[in-house]
Amino acid sequence: MQQIIGHIIIGIGLLFLAFGILGIFRFSNFYARILVASKIDTVAFLTILAGVIVRQGWSAFSLRVVLILVIMLLINPLITHIITRSAYLSGYKVKKED
């Protein structure tokens, strides 16, 4: 029962991830792409790792997965921020989507 719930949560995470990839190819503006893609990726990462935690139950394995989750939550906004800042300070203009 526990394993089936975990599998359902992992499946929902894969669905989020597929929408993120769709967003990368759909928009023609760089800023729209980075806003859509990185963020859907955050949600998908949270959901898939939560699914693995539910599947494994309370053990040393789950504690390590929680550690990976905390590290990812700390560094993911930094990566998005520094890529966008690099593009903005290099003079890439925000255009309307055409």
Partner: peptide
């Protein structure tokens, strides 16, 4: 642009991380 390439490099890194976690599970 080069920032598109950086962004997708980051996406691939996080996907490989998820792949390793699923394989370990």
């Amino acid at each position: 642009t080069v920032w598109d390439r950086l962004m997708c490099f980051n996406l691939i890194t996080s996907k490989i991380c998820m792949l390793v976690v699923l394989y370990a599970a």
